[in-house]
Amino acid sequence: MNHAARWWLLSDVHLGVSDDDPRHPGSMLPEFLHREVLATAGPQPNVAFVGDTFELFGLAEDESLARLESILAHNGDMFRVLKACAEQGVQLHFVCGNHDVELARPSVAARLSALLSPAEPTRVQVHPWFLHVPHVLVAEHGHQHHALHRMPEVLRSAVNGTDELDLPPLAAWNANPSTSRLSRAGAVARACLASERAERRVREDAYDELLQTESLRLGLDGVAVRDLARLSRFRTVSALPVAATRMVLGAAGRRGAGEEAPAAAGRFARTLQAHDSGVAWYVSGHTHRALETALDACPTRYINTGTWCSDVRGRGPDQSDRRAFPYAMVDVARDGTTSGGLRYWRPDGG
């Protein structure tokens, strides 16, 4: 028999060591969790942060650990309410995004669990690639389908128990802004070559063994997981023009628009369906555009949970109202049926 459950999913909070964002996500989120999660009686509660929860990007292992502790210390209300959630039986999930991929390091994931739920660390789960609830939902940040942020061997650190992380090519451009553009361009070129090599390794037997291990954790068929890992691919010839366009638009204070579900979301959902593992909901973040829509040729419904920071890029109510914060809710009945969708929370209850 299935167990009834309720899921709250949100993404792109971008918590750092300061709270200078005009929307103050570090102050708003604890209030949301108090009112919507801790004050709600009902089925098993789950809260999933679908990537870019913390600003940890590009840090070494020791630096990641120190920064994580600093972020939680600075956001004291957030720290306390997350601990209260774990103590009261809420299952906390953290999906890695491109800004907090460091959570994939076993040492960093273990520290997060120990800080938030010292009595029962399993109340806190880190998902290096994606979260899967059989026949209910999948949640991935979405950067793995974006050439500028894709990390092909995303599982190498988490599954192998190492602390190695290969950062994406765009990171080579942004890593040290004090160096010359020529130096950074050279770093990007080297990173592109490294990504191309990594893409080849993802298709080799050694990485298939990691995928098999991950399939057991995800509760998915090994062939399905392998197919999902190969849905997207980094290609220098297509990535560099995208990077150039993004830099030009950024210099002009503009961003690329798009109000449709990305094609990768449909490919992901249809791949699951082809392996008899279809889900009702596909949830992602990354684009900072809150959106709910249907997927082509697939019964799965798409939700993008937008962002809680001020860098809103969609056309929803959160664009004009800084006190409207997007999230997804999914209710699971005992018979396995689901309901839910994209929601907006306001601290005044509106």
Score class of each variant (00 low, 15 high):
216 L>T: 05
203 R>G: 01
202 V>Q: 09
199 E>C: 06
208 D>V: 00
209 E>L: 14
225 V>W: 12
208 D>I: 00
215 S>K: 10
218 L>R: 09
207 Y>H: 15
206 A>H: 09
206 A>L: 06
207 Y>V: 02
205 D>I: 01
220 L>C: 08
217 R>E: 06
213 T>C: 05
198 A>L: 05
198 A>W: 04
210 L>I: 07
224 A>R: 02
217 R>P: 00
220 L>G: 05
221 D>A: 10
211 L>F: 02
209 E>I: 11
213 T>K: 09
222 G>E: 13
202 V>R: 15
223 V>N: 13
219 G>I: 05
226 R>E: 12
219 G>P: 06
212 Q>A: 13
225 V>Q: 11
223 V>F: 06
228 L>N: 08
206 A>Q: 09
222 G>L: 01
205 D>T: 10
202 V>F: 01
214 E>R: 14
220 L>S: 06
214 E>S: 01
209 E>C: 03
213 T>P: 00
212 Q>N: 07
211 L>M: 06
224 A>Q: 04
207 Y>P: 03
226 R>H: 14
200 R>V: 12
210 L>T: 03
228 L>I: 14
205 D>Y: 08
213 T>F: 02
204 E>R: 14
200 R>Q: 11
214 E>I: 00
226 R>I: 02
222 G>F: 01
220 L>Y: 11
210 L>N: 11
202 V>Y: 01
205 D>L: 12
215 S>N: 07
217 R>V: 07
225 V>M: 14
215 S>D: 01
224 A>K: 02
225 V>Y: 11
213 T>N: 03
208 D>S: 12
219 G>F: 10
221 D>H: 13
208 D>Q: 14
215 S>C: 04
203 R>D: 03
210 L>K: 03
218 L>F: 08
201 R>K: 11
211 L>R: 02
214 E>K: 10
228 L>H: 12
216 L>C: 01
227 D>V: 10
205 D>F: 08
218 L>I: 03
209 E>A: 14
228 L>M: 14
221 D>C: 12
200 R>E: 05
214 E>W: 13
201 R>C: 02
215 S>F: 08
207 Y>N: 04
209 E>W: 05
